[in-house]
Amino acid sequence: MSGLAISARGLTRRFGELTAVDHIDLSVEKGRIFGFLGPNGSGKTTAIRMLCGLLTPSDGNVEVLGRRIPADAEPLRREIGYMTQKFSLYTDLTTLENLRFMARVYGLGRGERRRRIDEVLEQFALTELRGRQLQAMSGGQRQRVALAVATLHRPTLLFLDEPTSAVDPENRRDFWEKLFDLSEAGTTILVSTHYMDEAERCHRLAILERGRVRRDDSPQALMGALDGRVVEVSGSDLRTLRAQLMVRPEVVSAAQQGSRLRVLFDAGAEAPLEQLHSAAQGHTCQLARPNLEDVFMAATSGGRA
């Protein structure tokens, strides 16, 4: 078997006139954390649903864990775990009741069931919360339960659709620690997010915009490709300067961040730092380390395209 957990070619999904996912190609290596980064409506959920076999693609070929989707979706279900974007566990049941229900639905034997439930309770620090109904839990606690349920049957591939959108930053870090543990243990993870800091933790990242994959590489490579194209300007009257810069064709974006203006240049722009020096007399200019936000802006042409 190949080293790919997911391989998609020309994956497409139309809803009437709208093309939610537009001919995307994906290669997700086994054991990696692969990220979908994109704004709301960019097609992350639709793509994940197709990869899980929940939505029939309008076009394209998909293989997940060596099985053709959607034809072979049913046997695939035991091998994947899916954490939906909208919370989908039973909030009127307790942690333990949800776990027991899902363990039986996944067909775990009696002994196996008890062992696995104890394991995930331990693993996700839920032992104290096992008797509590989910409706009485915080967002972070609920997401831990959801992850516990998604991993209960030891899937080799996990789909996590914006798993941390209702979680505060500190709990988000803890959540990611759990993901790295799972990844370490060999689980392939596909996670969607619109948080840049989260995206940066992935081994590989696909940037989605309006149903298309605009970039697809490791976060480091994506950011490295912008070396020399991001300049930070500090000084007075940055708003006027920004307006002047934005009309230039070689400037992709200019965003004010506190007392600095972060300017992203087009790939073809020549000597960005020098250009800015002359354009912004009286300001201090220096090259900055590109971040994922810059990558995202560059990939989507600053949202102007």
Binding site: R77, T84, K86, S88, L89, T91, V105, Y106, V149
Partner: peptide, 13 residues
């Protein structure tokens, strides 16, 4: 409506 179904149909049930 509550969203439980999306999870349920991902299982082998």
């Amino acid at each position: 409506e509550l969203g439980n179904m999306e999870l349920l149909i991902t299982t082998p049930i």
